[in-house]
Nucleic acid binder design. Structure first.
Lengths: 209, 209
DNA sequence: GCTTGGCATGAACGCCCGTTCAGTTAATCT
DNA sequence: AGATTAACTGAACGGGCGTTCATGCCAAGC
Protein backbone atom coordinates (compact mmCIF):
# COMPACT_ATOMS: atom_id res chain seq x y z
CA UNK A 1 0.00 0.00 0.00
CA UNK A 2 2.49 2.59 1.15
CA UNK A 3 4.78 4.09 -1.48
CA UNK A 4 8.00 5.97 -1.19
CA UNK A 5 6.88 9.01 -3.18
CA UNK A 6 3.30 10.15 -2.80
CA UNK A 7 1.59 10.40 -6.17
CA UNK A 8 -0.19 13.61 -7.02
CA UNK A 9 -3.54 11.96 -6.46
CA UNK A 10 -2.68 11.13 -2.89
CA UNK A 11 -2.31 14.82 -2.26
CA UNK A 12 -5.15 16.20 -4.34
CA UNK A 13 -7.83 13.99 -2.77
CA UNK A 14 -7.34 15.33 0.75
CA UNK A 15 -6.98 18.85 -0.62
CA UNK A 16 -10.38 18.56 -2.22
CA UNK A 17 -11.94 17.27 0.99
CA UNK A 18 -10.38 20.04 3.01
CA UNK A 19 -11.52 22.74 0.59
CA UNK A 20 -15.02 21.29 0.40
CA UNK A 21 -15.26 21.05 4.19
CA UNK A 22 -14.23 24.65 4.66
CA UNK A 23 -16.49 26.04 1.95
CA UNK A 24 -19.50 23.92 2.88
CA UNK A 25 -19.13 24.93 6.52
CA UNK A 26 -18.77 28.62 5.75
CA UNK A 27 -21.36 29.06 3.01
CA UNK A 28 -23.55 25.98 3.09
CA UNK A 29 -23.69 22.96 0.83
CA UNK A 30 -26.23 24.36 -1.61
CA UNK A 31 -24.43 27.70 -1.90
CA UNK A 32 -21.07 26.23 -2.87
CA UNK A 33 -20.50 25.10 -6.46
CA UNK A 34 -18.17 22.37 -7.64
CA UNK A 35 -16.37 25.01 -9.66
CA UNK A 36 -15.68 27.02 -6.53
CA UNK A 37 -14.27 24.02 -4.70
CA UNK A 38 -12.09 23.26 -7.71
CA UNK A 39 -10.84 26.85 -7.82
CA UNK A 40 -9.89 26.66 -4.14
CA UNK A 41 -7.81 23.57 -4.85
CA UNK A 42 -6.40 25.03 -8.07
CA UNK A 43 -7.85 22.55 -10.56
CA UNK A 44 -10.70 22.47 -13.05
CA UNK A 45 -14.16 21.33 -12.01
CA UNK A 46 -13.95 18.11 -14.01
CA UNK A 47 -10.98 16.99 -11.94
CA UNK A 48 -13.12 16.70 -8.83
CA UNK A 49 -14.93 13.78 -10.43
CA UNK A 50 -11.73 11.74 -10.40
CA UNK A 51 -12.00 11.83 -6.60
CA UNK A 52 -15.69 11.78 -5.85
CA UNK A 53 -18.66 10.38 -7.70
CA UNK A 54 -20.76 13.49 -7.17
CA UNK A 55 -21.36 16.47 -4.92
CA UNK A 56 -23.66 14.57 -2.56
CA UNK A 57 -21.02 11.89 -1.89
CA UNK A 58 -18.48 14.58 -1.16
CA UNK A 59 -20.75 15.97 1.56
CA UNK A 60 -21.68 12.56 2.88
CA UNK A 61 -18.07 11.39 3.12
CA UNK A 62 -17.14 14.49 5.09
CA UNK A 63 -19.95 13.93 7.55
CA UNK A 64 -19.44 10.19 7.81
CA UNK A 65 -15.72 10.43 8.46
CA UNK A 66 -16.31 13.12 11.08
CA UNK A 67 -18.83 10.99 12.95
CA UNK A 68 -16.65 7.89 12.78
CA UNK A 69 -13.64 9.81 14.05
CA UNK A 70 -15.80 11.09 16.89
CA UNK A 71 -16.86 7.59 17.90
CA UNK A 72 -13.35 6.19 17.49
CA UNK A 73 -11.83 8.99 19.54
CA UNK A 74 -14.33 8.49 22.35
CA UNK A 75 -13.55 4.78 22.19
CA UNK A 76 -9.85 5.52 22.77
CA UNK A 77 -10.46 8.05 25.54
CA UNK A 78 -9.44 7.06 29.09
CA UNK A 79 -12.67 7.19 31.00
CA UNK A 80 -12.29 6.11 34.59
CA UNK A 81 -14.51 3.54 36.24
CA UNK A 82 -17.15 5.26 38.32
CA UNK A 83 -20.05 7.05 36.59
CA UNK A 84 -19.14 10.52 37.89
CA UNK A 85 -15.60 10.21 36.57
CA UNK A 86 -16.87 8.83 33.27
CA UNK A 87 -19.32 11.70 32.90
CA UNK A 88 -16.59 14.24 33.61
CA UNK A 89 -14.40 12.51 31.01
CA UNK A 90 -17.24 12.69 28.50
CA UNK A 91 -17.69 16.41 29.10
CA UNK A 92 -13.99 17.19 28.75
CA UNK A 93 -13.70 14.95 25.69
CA UNK A 94 -16.72 16.39 23.93
CA UNK A 95 -15.62 19.98 24.35
CA UNK A 96 -12.02 19.31 23.40
CA UNK A 97 -12.86 17.17 20.35
CA UNK A 98 -15.48 19.58 19.06
CA UNK A 99 -13.40 22.72 19.57
CA UNK A 100 -10.58 21.06 17.62
CA UNK A 101 -12.66 20.73 14.42
CA UNK A 102 -15.29 23.46 14.35
CA UNK A 103 -15.90 23.24 10.62
CA UNK A 104 -16.65 19.51 10.64
CA UNK A 105 -18.90 19.95 13.66
CA UNK A 106 -20.77 22.80 12.03
CA UNK A 107 -21.22 20.79 8.85
CA UNK A 108 -22.43 17.71 10.68
CA UNK A 109 -25.09 19.69 12.54
CA UNK A 110 -26.20 22.03 9.77
CA UNK A 111 -26.21 20.01 6.60
CA UNK A 112 -28.21 16.99 7.68
CA UNK A 113 -31.07 18.31 5.59
CA UNK A 114 -28.86 18.36 2.49
CA UNK A 115 -28.36 14.60 2.64
CA UNK A 116 -30.50 12.30 0.54
CA UNK A 117 -32.63 10.09 2.82
CA UNK A 118 -30.35 7.06 2.69
CA UNK A 119 -27.28 9.06 3.66
CA UNK A 120 -29.24 10.93 6.31
CA UNK A 121 -30.20 7.65 7.94
CA UNK A 122 -26.57 6.52 8.05
CA UNK A 123 -25.34 9.71 9.68
CA UNK A 124 -28.26 9.71 12.07
CA UNK A 125 -27.36 6.18 13.16
CA UNK A 126 -23.81 7.27 13.99
CA UNK A 127 -25.07 10.31 15.89
CA UNK A 128 -27.38 8.03 17.84
CA UNK A 129 -24.49 5.80 18.87
CA UNK A 130 -22.67 8.80 20.31
CA UNK A 131 -25.76 9.93 22.17
CA UNK A 132 -26.12 6.41 23.55
CA UNK A 133 -22.61 6.56 24.94
CA UNK A 134 -23.69 9.45 27.14
CA UNK A 135 -27.03 7.88 27.99
CA UNK A 136 -25.22 4.73 29.12
CA UNK A 137 -23.09 6.71 31.54
CA UNK A 138 -26.13 8.43 32.99
CA UNK A 139 -28.02 5.15 33.29
CA UNK A 140 -25.14 3.52 35.12
CA UNK A 141 -24.88 6.50 37.45
CA UNK A 142 -28.58 6.43 38.21
CA UNK A 143 -28.48 2.70 38.90
CA UNK A 144 -25.55 3.23 41.27
CA UNK A 145 -27.38 6.03 43.05
CA UNK A 146 -24.74 8.54 42.03
CA UNK A 147 -26.93 10.55 39.71
CA UNK A 148 -30.48 11.68 40.08
CA UNK A 149 -32.35 12.77 36.97
CA UNK A 150 -36.06 13.16 36.36
CA UNK A 151 -35.81 11.88 32.78
CA UNK A 152 -32.87 10.06 31.26
CA UNK A 153 -33.52 11.04 27.67
CA UNK A 154 -34.11 14.70 28.42
CA UNK A 155 -30.99 14.86 30.55
CA UNK A 156 -28.99 13.26 27.72
CA UNK A 157 -30.30 15.72 25.15
CA UNK A 158 -29.74 18.67 27.48
CA UNK A 159 -26.14 17.77 28.13
CA UNK A 160 -25.33 17.17 24.46
CA UNK A 161 -26.98 20.46 23.53
CA UNK A 162 -25.21 22.52 26.15
CA UNK A 163 -21.83 20.98 25.32
CA UNK A 164 -22.19 21.38 21.59
CA UNK A 165 -23.34 24.95 22.14
CA UNK A 166 -19.81 25.82 23.23
CA UNK A 167 -18.79 25.74 19.57
CA UNK A 168 -21.13 28.60 18.77
CA UNK A 169 -19.44 31.10 21.05
CA UNK A 170 -15.95 29.91 21.97
CA UNK A 171 -13.11 31.83 20.36
CA UNK A 172 -9.41 31.22 20.93
CA UNK A 173 -7.74 34.04 22.74
CA UNK A 174 -10.88 34.83 24.68
CA UNK A 175 -11.40 35.18 28.40
CA UNK A 176 -11.16 31.46 29.15
CA UNK A 177 -8.95 28.67 27.85
CA UNK A 178 -10.47 25.51 26.43
CA UNK A 179 -9.49 23.65 29.60
CA UNK A 180 -11.08 26.26 31.85
CA UNK A 181 -14.28 26.08 29.84
CA UNK A 182 -14.14 22.30 30.12
CA UNK A 183 -13.83 22.43 33.90
CA UNK A 184 -16.72 24.84 34.28
CA UNK A 185 -18.90 22.60 32.14
CA UNK A 186 -17.84 19.56 34.18
CA UNK A 187 -19.12 21.42 37.21
CA UNK A 188 -22.38 22.52 35.57
CA UNK A 189 -23.13 19.09 34.15
CA UNK A 190 -22.33 17.63 37.56
CA UNK A 191 -24.99 19.83 39.13
CA UNK A 192 -27.46 18.93 36.41
CA UNK A 193 -27.31 15.22 37.18
CA UNK A 194 -26.03 15.19 40.70
CA UNK A 195 -28.09 14.29 43.70
CA UNK A 196 -28.02 17.13 46.22
CA UNK A 197 -24.47 17.54 47.40
CA UNK A 198 -25.37 16.82 50.99
CA UNK A 199 -26.90 13.49 50.05
CA UNK A 200 -24.08 12.37 47.76
CA UNK A 201 -22.18 9.31 48.93
CA UNK A 202 -18.85 10.87 48.08
CA UNK A 203 -19.21 14.57 47.29
CA UNK A 204 -15.64 15.27 46.28
CA UNK A 205 -15.32 12.51 43.74
CA UNK A 206 -17.07 14.07 40.81
CA UNK A 207 -14.29 16.34 39.76
CA UNK A 208 -11.71 13.56 39.71
CA UNK A 209 -9.82 12.99 36.51
CA UNK B 1 -55.53 51.53 8.07
CA UNK B 2 -58.07 48.75 8.45
CA UNK B 3 -60.40 48.15 5.54
CA UNK B 4 -63.64 46.29 5.31
CA UNK B 5 -62.62 44.02 2.45
CA UNK B 6 -59.04 42.85 2.28
CA UNK B 7 -57.49 43.50 -1.11
CA UNK B 8 -55.75 40.63 -2.83
CA UNK B 9 -52.39 42.09 -1.95
CA UNK B 10 -53.16 41.92 1.74
CA UNK B 11 -53.56 38.19 1.38
CA UNK B 12 -50.78 37.40 -1.07
CA UNK B 13 -48.07 39.10 0.98
CA UNK B 14 -48.50 36.87 4.03
CA UNK B 15 -48.90 33.83 1.78
CA UNK B 16 -45.52 34.52 0.25
CA UNK B 17 -43.90 34.93 3.65
CA UNK B 18 -45.44 31.70 4.90
CA UNK B 19 -44.35 29.75 1.84
CA UNK B 20 -40.84 31.19 1.98
CA UNK B 21 -40.53 30.43 5.68
CA UNK B 22 -41.57 26.83 5.22
CA UNK B 23 -39.37 26.22 2.19
CA UNK B 24 -36.32 28.01 3.59
CA UNK B 25 -36.63 26.07 6.83
CA UNK B 26 -37.02 22.71 5.13
CA UNK B 27 -34.48 23.01 2.32
CA UNK B 28 -32.28 25.97 3.16
CA UNK B 29 -32.18 29.48 1.76
CA UNK B 30 -29.69 28.77 -1.02
CA UNK B 31 -31.49 25.62 -2.12
CA UNK B 32 -34.87 27.30 -2.61
CA UNK B 33 -35.51 29.32 -5.75
CA UNK B 34 -37.84 32.26 -6.13
CA UNK B 35 -39.71 30.24 -8.76
CA UNK B 36 -40.32 27.48 -6.24
CA UNK B 37 -41.69 29.90 -3.66
CA UNK B 38 -43.93 31.41 -6.33
CA UNK B 39 -45.19 27.97 -7.35
CA UNK B 40 -46.07 27.20 -3.72
CA UNK B 41 -48.15 30.37 -3.56
CA UNK B 42 -49.63 29.81 -7.02
CA UNK B 43 -48.22 32.85 -8.80
CA UNK B 44 -45.42 33.57 -11.24
CA UNK B 45 -41.94 34.41 -10.00
CA UNK B 46 -42.17 38.02 -11.09
CA UNK B 47 -45.10 38.57 -8.76
CA UNK B 48 -42.91 38.05 -5.71
CA UNK B 49 -41.13 41.28 -6.54
CA UNK B 50 -44.31 43.24 -5.92
CA UNK B 51 -43.98 42.18 -2.27
CA UNK B 52 -40.27 42.02 -1.61
CA UNK B 53 -37.32 43.86 -3.07
CA UNK B 54 -35.22 40.73 -3.41
CA UNK B 55 -34.59 37.25 -2.03
CA UNK B 56 -32.25 38.47 0.70
CA UNK B 57 -34.86 40.88 2.12
CA UNK B 58 -37.39 38.08 2.16
CA UNK B 59 -35.07 36.03 4.38
CA UNK B 60 -34.10 38.97 6.53
CA UNK B 61 -37.70 40.04 7.14
CA UNK B 62 -38.61 36.51 8.24
CA UNK B 63 -35.75 36.41 10.71
CA UNK B 64 -36.25 39.96 11.97
CA UNK B 65 -39.95 39.55 12.60
CA UNK B 66 -39.32 36.26 14.41
CA UNK B 67 -36.76 37.83 16.72
CA UNK B 68 -38.93 40.84 17.42
CA UNK B 69 -41.93 38.66 18.19
CA UNK B 70 -39.73 36.69 20.56
CA UNK B 71 -38.64 39.80 22.43
CA UNK B 72 -42.15 41.24 22.47
CA UNK B 73 -43.66 38.01 23.74
CA UNK B 74 -41.10 37.75 26.54
CA UNK B 75 -41.87 41.37 27.39
CA UNK B 76 -45.56 40.49 27.81
CA UNK B 77 -44.89 37.32 29.81
CA UNK B 78 -45.86 37.32 33.51
CA UNK B 79 -42.60 36.72 35.27
CA UNK B 80 -42.90 36.81 39.02
CA UNK B 81 -40.65 38.83 41.26
CA UNK B 82 -37.95 36.64 42.75
CA UNK B 83 -35.10 35.40 40.55
CA UNK B 84 -35.98 31.70 40.91
CA UNK B 85 -39.55 32.34 39.78
CA UNK B 86 -38.33 34.55 36.95
CA UNK B 87 -35.92 31.89 35.78
CA UNK B 88 -38.64 29.25 35.85
CA UNK B 89 -40.86 31.59 33.84
CA UNK B 90 -38.09 32.08 31.31
CA UNK B 91 -37.61 28.34 30.89
CA UNK B 92 -41.32 27.68 30.44
CA UNK B 93 -41.67 30.64 28.08
CA UNK B 94 -38.69 29.71 25.94
CA UNK B 95 -39.78 26.13 25.41
CA UNK B 96 -43.40 27.04 24.75
CA UNK B 97 -42.60 29.90 22.35
CA UNK B 98 -40.02 27.93 20.42
CA UNK B 99 -42.11 24.77 20.12
CA UNK B 100 -44.96 26.86 18.73
CA UNK B 101 -42.94 28.02 15.69
CA UNK B 102 -40.31 25.40 14.85
CA UNK B 103 -39.78 26.62 11.30
CA UNK B 104 -39.00 30.20 12.29
CA UNK B 105 -36.69 28.99 15.05
CA UNK B 106 -34.88 26.68 12.69
CA UNK B 107 -34.48 29.46 10.15
CA UNK B 108 -33.21 31.94 12.70
CA UNK B 109 -30.53 29.54 13.91
CA UNK B 110 -29.48 28.02 10.59
CA UNK B 111 -29.52 30.82 8.07
CA UNK B 112 -27.50 33.46 9.87
CA UNK B 113 -24.69 32.76 7.44
CA UNK B 114 -26.96 33.51 4.49
CA UNK B 115 -27.45 37.09 5.63
CA UNK B 116 -25.36 39.88 4.19
CA UNK B 117 -23.17 41.41 6.92
CA UNK B 118 -25.44 44.36 7.64
CA UNK B 119 -28.49 42.16 8.10
CA UNK B 120 -26.49 39.67 10.14
CA UNK B 121 -25.49 42.39 12.56
CA UNK B 122 -29.11 43.47 13.03
CA UNK B 123 -30.31 39.94 13.78
CA UNK B 124 -27.34 39.31 16.04
CA UNK B 125 -28.21 42.43 18.04
CA UNK B 126 -31.75 41.15 18.61
CA UNK B 127 -30.46 37.72 19.63
CA UNK B 128 -28.12 39.41 22.06
CA UNK B 129 -30.99 41.28 23.69
CA UNK B 130 -32.79 38.02 24.33
CA UNK B 131 -29.66 36.44 25.76
CA UNK B 132 -29.28 39.47 28.02
CA UNK B 133 -32.77 38.95 29.39
CA UNK B 134 -31.65 35.58 30.73
CA UNK B 135 -28.28 36.88 31.91
CA UNK B 136 -30.06 39.63 33.87
CA UNK B 137 -32.15 37.06 35.71
CA UNK B 138 -29.10 35.02 36.61
CA UNK B 139 -27.18 38.12 37.71
CA UNK B 140 -30.03 39.20 39.99
CA UNK B 141 -30.25 35.73 41.45
CA UNK B 142 -26.53 35.59 42.12
CA UNK B 143 -26.61 39.02 43.78
CA UNK B 144 -29.49 37.87 45.97
CA UNK B 145 -27.64 34.70 46.91
CA UNK B 146 -30.31 32.54 45.33
CA UNK B 147 -28.15 31.21 42.50
CA UNK B 148 -24.60 30.04 42.49
CA UNK B 149 -22.80 29.81 39.17
CA UNK B 150 -19.10 29.61 38.40
CA UNK B 151 -19.42 31.79 35.29
CA UNK B 152 -22.38 33.94 34.36
CA UNK B 153 -21.80 33.94 30.64
CA UNK B 154 -21.21 30.22 30.38
CA UNK B 155 -24.29 29.50 32.46
CA UNK B 156 -26.33 31.78 30.19
CA UNK B 157 -25.08 30.09 27.03
CA UNK B 158 -25.60 26.63 28.52
CA UNK B 159 -29.19 27.31 29.44
CA UNK B 160 -30.07 28.84 26.09
CA UNK B 161 -28.45 25.93 24.28
CA UNK B 162 -30.18 23.26 26.29
CA UNK B 163 -33.56 24.95 25.97
CA UNK B 164 -33.28 25.54 22.25
CA UNK B 165 -32.12 21.97 21.84
CA UNK B 166 -35.63 20.83 22.72
CA UNK B 167 -36.73 21.86 19.23
CA UNK B 168 -34.41 19.31 17.66
CA UNK B 169 -36.06 16.29 19.22
CA UNK B 170 -39.54 17.21 20.49
CA UNK B 171 -42.41 15.77 18.49
CA UNK B 172 -46.09 16.21 19.29
CA UNK B 173 -47.75 13.00 20.33
CA UNK B 174 -44.55 11.72 21.91
CA UNK B 175 -43.97 10.41 25.41
CA UNK B 176 -44.18 13.81 27.12
CA UNK B 177 -46.42 16.83 26.63
CA UNK B 178 -44.92 20.26 26.08
CA UNK B 179 -45.83 21.20 29.63
CA UNK B 180 -44.20 18.11 31.09
CA UNK B 181 -41.05 18.82 29.13
CA UNK B 182 -41.16 22.38 30.41
CA UNK B 183 -41.40 21.27 34.03
CA UNK B 184 -38.50 18.84 33.69
CA UNK B 185 -36.38 21.59 32.19
CA UNK B 186 -37.37 23.96 34.97
CA UNK B 187 -36.04 21.39 37.38
CA UNK B 188 -32.81 20.76 35.45
CA UNK B 189 -32.09 24.45 34.98
CA UNK B 190 -32.82 24.94 38.66
CA UNK B 191 -30.14 22.44 39.55
CA UNK B 192 -27.72 24.01 37.11
CA UNK B 193 -27.84 27.39 38.84
CA UNK B 194 -29.04 26.48 42.26
CA UNK B 195 -26.92 26.56 45.35
CA UNK B 196 -26.94 23.16 47.03
CA UNK B 197 -30.44 22.44 48.17
CA UNK B 198 -29.43 22.22 51.82
CA UNK B 199 -27.90 25.67 51.74
CA UNK B 200 -30.76 27.38 49.91
CA UNK B 201 -32.60 30.07 51.89
CA UNK B 202 -35.96 28.74 50.72
CA UNK B 203 -35.60 25.37 49.04
CA UNK B 204 -39.19 24.90 47.96
CA UNK B 205 -39.63 28.20 46.20
CA UNK B 206 -37.94 27.48 42.92
CA UNK B 207 -40.74 25.47 41.43
CA UNK B 208 -43.34 28.12 42.09
CA UNK B 209 -45.36 29.47 39.20
C1' DG C 1 -69.70 53.28 -19.43
C1' DC C 2 -65.26 54.87 -19.06
C1' DT C 3 -61.08 55.63 -16.78
C1' DT C 4 -57.88 54.56 -13.41
C1' DG C 5 -54.57 51.87 -11.06
C1' DG C 6 -53.47 47.73 -8.41
C1' DC C 7 -52.11 43.18 -9.56
C1' DA C 8 -50.21 39.61 -12.20
C1' DT C 9 -48.19 37.56 -16.33
C1' DG C 10 -44.63 35.36 -19.05
C1' DA C 11 -40.88 36.19 -21.82
C1' DA C 12 -36.38 37.64 -21.72
C1' DC C 13 -31.52 38.81 -19.82
C1' DG C 14 -27.02 37.24 -18.55
C1' DC C 15 -25.15 34.07 -15.71
C1' DC C 16 -24.01 29.84 -13.11
C1' DC C 17 -25.15 25.02 -12.10
C1' DG C 18 -23.60 19.59 -11.84
C1' DT C 19 -21.76 16.45 -14.70
C1' DT C 20 -19.51 14.23 -18.89
C1' DC C 21 -15.87 13.26 -21.99
C1' DA C 22 -12.58 13.49 -25.88
C1' DG C 23 -8.22 15.12 -25.87
C1' DT C 24 -3.61 16.73 -23.84
C1' DT C 25 0.19 16.42 -20.73
C1' DA C 26 3.88 14.50 -18.13
C1' DA C 27 5.74 11.00 -15.33
C1' DT C 28 6.74 6.02 -15.09
C1' DC C 29 7.93 1.61 -16.87
C1' DT C 30 10.12 -1.61 -20.18
C1' DA D 1 13.36 5.64 -26.90
C1' DG D 2 9.02 4.31 -27.11
C1' DA D 3 4.78 2.68 -24.86
C1' DT D 4 1.78 3.03 -21.12
C1' DT D 5 -1.01 5.27 -17.99
C1' DA D 6 -2.46 8.35 -14.23
C1' DA D 7 -3.77 13.11 -13.89
C1' DC D 8 -5.91 16.89 -15.63
C1' DT D 9 -8.02 20.19 -19.03
C1' DG D 10 -11.53 22.79 -21.22
C1' DA D 11 -15.44 22.75 -23.84
C1' DA D 12 -19.93 21.30 -24.00
C1' DC D 13 -24.73 19.66 -22.37
C1' DG D 14 -29.31 20.76 -20.69
C1' DG D 15 -31.18 23.21 -17.30
C1' DG D 16 -32.12 26.47 -13.46
C1' DC D 17 -30.92 30.87 -11.27
C1' DG D 18 -32.44 36.04 -9.58
C1' DT D 19 -34.33 39.81 -11.48
C1' DT D 20 -36.63 43.09 -14.91
C1' DC D 21 -40.25 44.80 -17.63
C1' DA D 22 -43.63 45.59 -21.39
C1' DT D 23 -48.06 44.04 -21.58
C1' DG D 24 -52.68 42.70 -20.19
C1' DC D 25 -56.51 42.05 -17.01
C1' DC D 26 -60.16 43.42 -14.02
C1' DA D 27 -62.42 45.52 -10.07
C1' DA D 28 -63.27 50.15 -8.06
C1' DG D 29 -64.39 55.06 -8.56
C1' DC D 30 -66.35 58.65 -11.31
Amino acid sequence: MARKTGSRAEITGPLIRRAALSLFARHGYAAVSMRRIAAEVGVQAGTLYLYTSDKQSLLFELMRSHMEELLAAWGREPKGKEPPARLAAFVRFHIRFHLERPEAVFLAYMELRSLVPENFARIEALRQRYEDALADILRAGIAAGRFQVADLRLATMSIIAMLTGVNTWYRDGGRLSREEVGEIYVEMVGRLVGPDRGAAPDPGVFGER
